[in-house]
């Protein structure tokens, strides 16, 4: 069965050849994934990162930008492998959204 990401040979639109400087967010997630795969860290593998992206549902795969897929994929893989838990990530997201860095209560 041809999977959704396997697009070679399909028809498509004229290319959008606009050059795109990577944002800080895009550079950071790229470096984070690279470092997690590096021989020194080896928390995940390139193959695992590819799998989680390729397992996304077609609508989700298409809705996310390239590095959004990297981020979502890394999130799922770290939870799947027990490196981080969903609960602690949710807590961290909430703390950061409230501007509470480092557990210092703010009013």
């Amino acid at each position: 069965m041809v999977q959704h990401h396997d697009v070679g040979g399909q028809s498509g639109r004229p290319l959008d050849r606009q050059e795109h400087d990577l944002s800080d967010f895009e550079r950071r997630i790229d470096a984070l994934c690279l470092m997690l795969c590096s021989p020194a860290t080896r928390v995940v593998t390139v193959e695992e990162l590819r799998r989680v992206k390729e397992q996304m549902k077609p609508a989700e795969y298409d809705a996310l930008s390239y590095y959004e897929r990297w981020t979502e994929g890394l999130y799922r893989l770290l939870v799947e492998k027990g490196v981080l838990s969903e609960a602690e990530i949710a807590t961290k997201l909430r703390q950061n959204a409230e501007g509470d860095h480092g557990g210092v209560p703010r009013r």
């Binding site: 997630i29 984070l32 860290t41 996310l64 961290k92 997201l93």
Partner: peptide, 22 residues
């Protein structure tokens, strides 16, 4: 969507640093 994933990247990165993974 962009800010949601930026926030997620930040959260993952900070937790991984706190735990000494990176």
């Amino acid at each position: 969507p962009v800010s949601r994933y930026e926030a997620l990247e930040q959260a993952l990165r900070e937790l991984l640093i706190e735990k000494g993974v990176v």
